[in-house]
Design a protein around this nucleic acid. Structure first.
Lengths: 176, 176
DNA sequence: GGCCGCATGTAATCTGTTACATGATTCT
DNA sequence: AGAATCATGTAACAGATTACATGCGGCC
């Protein structure tokens, strides 16, 4: 059986938690200008490609629904394996700072849907991860010789500190 | 004639400003652990590919230098067009926040080599660009309905503010 | 008649990264 | 003898994005 390393594609499973949907309908929800649309824009063609990959690894199954005077739809159902993969994905921190901009914000969107507990888990995990980055950078600042190296590390420190501040902010907004 | 939109590949032209070099030697300078090596890691094969593209658009010309008991070297010379392209690139701000991490830091490295004036030009340009992003985000925060939207925009604001603070910091370190 | 909405996809392209191929010399 | 250095590249693969292909029905 094929496998698929966790990517942002896993997010699509979140749309199928409540009820099966077809690709076009997922795209409409995705494009909501006050929801995920602000963060994640993807074309229909790209969406279909991602759904195809999720089917290959058996996280979803498909069923064709015929319609009169409309093209047939392909309904995507979440499998047990898919549910588990989603549960892992939505709680786990991202592995690199550059993934906060997109993947983490998408995680947060779905984590909030899953409830306060899950959202707080996600935030705590990511906070721990950011702390690790911070320590690693601080260690490098010490040893880094040269003015350029100091500038580089100060940049990274600033970005990570802003992330941490924001994560704390989120915990305040979401938590009790 | 082929063209090439400004990318980080332009940075390689900066190595050829003083004297012509061959690919292997460029790679050694690039890998300096207290210089660019902290920011930009690229494999030799990737470097040769980039140099090939710069040759296609006539920013560099090549000359083969034979050696006894060593493989022949391909020396890259900077052309007038290449010099101009580099001068534009090294002063110009990056067009997206995610390019600060890599491309902007590389620009800064070469801008400092070009002298204080160029470095300060680069910082000023990027600062103006960041201010635009900030204003745009602040406008969106006003109109954004929904808690999720507010969280998203606060994240982006935080990142941009950290960039601005760092740019100011750099101006202080580099400027008189 | 022409454009928009519904509904699905394939193909091409671009960028970035990794793996592989070659071959002489010098160092341990 | 084996590893590292010098020196160049091609090929393959992964990911994201864009462009293109198809076809019906309803609205203006």
């Amino acid at each position: 059986m094929k496998t698929l390393s966790p990517t942002i594609g896993y997010a699509l499973l979140g749309f199928l938690r409540q009820r099966p949907l077809h690709g076009y309908a997922i795209h409409q929800q995705l494009s909501d200008p006050v929801g995920l649309g602000q963060v994640w824009q993807l074309k229909l063609s790209q969406l279909y490609a991602l759904l195809g990959k999720l089917e290959e690894v058996d996280y979803v199954t498909t069923e064709v629904e015929m319609q009169t005077s409309r093209p047939p739809r392909k309904l995507f159902h979440l499998t047990a394996a898919g549910e588990e993969a989603f549960a892992m994905w939505v709680r786990g921190s991202v592995t690199h700072g550059r993934h906060l901009r997109l993947e983490f914000l998408v995680k947060l969107y779905f984590a909030r849907q899953e409830g306060t507990t899950v959202a707080l888990q996600l935030l705590a995990n990511q906070r721990a991860q950011c702390q690790l980055w911070l320590s690693a950078e601080q260690a490098k600042v010490e040893e880094s010789a040269g003015e350029y190296g100091r500038l580089v590390h100060r940049f990274r420190l600033g970005q990570i500190q802003a992330m941490l501040a924001w994560l704390d902010d989120c915990q305040g907004v979401i938590g009790v």
